[in-house]
């Protein structure tokens, strides 16, 4: 397999943890809540999914459990940020650290154990194409994740629900004056963000690298957060950023395997550098930032 077809085949799977977490965060931020606890929620989802899959062997069960666990943790954060009106940055960081701690605690007995991954589902015909064929042979979660991406994009853009979420994020006071329950909508959006972070963690721990190691999320939640901002809160750009990051991480691996004479630390930081440069360049447009930005992001709301 050439390096290029290796990258093309693997980039969607590599992008999936970022993509799922970033889409969830996108929805939460669109409603006006900044959840900095994504990393910890991914870690919690990862360990829960790993344990469930390890005990029962069922991936579906593992994903459901991970999603629920992370959504529950996100709801605790939402309670702090919305009901108690704690500072969102501080509450998010604290809940994130709690998630990482829980993850380490629960995962203690599973260190270095493995679970079976997921089989690839191929699209007949397309998956036999030269070079591009690998793109059409992915596991079920990738296919579902792409569908979810489409659904989230369409919901935010075309549906009444999406309209309400955007309205609440732009001007919560006006939304309240129109009779919308701002707090309830934000609870929902944050919980959804937690659910997606749980899925993202589950994918990382039970499908992408089906092996438990403490701290295995390794900053992917932070990258997801950065993706949302750099993508100027646009779904399409989140997808682009996540896939770009995935592709560059794989090319970095391919380069190391191919014996490129470059410092391996420098190579390892390549995905971060490329993603920041590319997304930084496209988010430099202040006009876009203003139109797509969330006006009330991070501000506590109350009477």
């Amino acid at each position: 397999m050439s390096a290029l077809s290796f990258i093309i085949a693997g980039m969607l799977a590599a992008a999936m943890p970022f993509l799922l977490a970033a889409l969830g965060e996108l929805v939460a931020e669109r409603s006006g809540v900044l959840n900095l606890g994504i990393e910890g929620m991914m870690a919690l989802g990862a360990v829960v999914a790993f344990i469930v899959v390890r005990q029962s062997g069922g991936h579906a069960m593992g994903f459901v459990a991970a999603g629920l666990a992370s959504a529950a943790l996100a709801t605790v954060f939402a309670w702090l940020a919305l009901a108690v009106r704690a500072n969102q940055v501080a509450a998010g960081l604290a809940i994130g650290i709690l998630g990482q701690g829980l993850s380490a605690l629960f995962g203690k007995r599973y260190e270095s154990l493995t679970v079976p991954g997921l089989p690839k589902l191929s699209i007949p015909g397309l998956s036999e194409l030269p070079l591009l064929g690998g793109l059409f042979s992915q596991d079920a979660v990738v296919w579902l994740g792409l569908l979810a991406t489409l659904a989230i994009w369409a919901t935010l853009r075309f549906s009444k629900l999406g309209l309400v979420i955007r309205a609440v994020g732009e001007n919560p006071h006006a939304a309240r004056a129109l009779g919308y329950n701002v707090i309830a909508i934000r609870y929902g959006a944050v919980a959804f963000g937690g659910l997606m972070a749980g899925f993202a963690g589950a994918y990382a721990a039970t499908v992408y690298t089906p092996l438990w190691a403490e701290g295995m999320i390794a900053g992917r939640g932070w990258i997801a957060l950065a993706l949302v901002v750099f993508a100027t809160w646009m779904t399409g750009r989140v997808v682009f950023g996540a896939v770009l990051f995935g592709a560059v991480s794989l090319s970095q691996l391919a380069a190391q395997a191919g014996g490129v004479a470059l410092n391996s630390q420098l190579l390892a930081s390549l995905p971060y550098i490329v993603t920041i440069l590319v997304l930084g360049a496209i988010s430099a447009n202040k006009r876009l930032l203003k139109i797509n930005g969330v006006a009330s992001l991070g501000e506590p709301f109350g009477r």
Partner: peptide, 20 residues
């Protein structure tokens, strides 16, 4: 009709109206 308008600037007129 509020004095300080309760409209959403990033939405279109019809989107604003469809909110209620």
């Amino acid at each position: 009709v509020f004095q300080h308008f309760s409209l959403f600037e990033t939405l279109t007129v019809v989107e604003n109206i469809s909110l209620i």
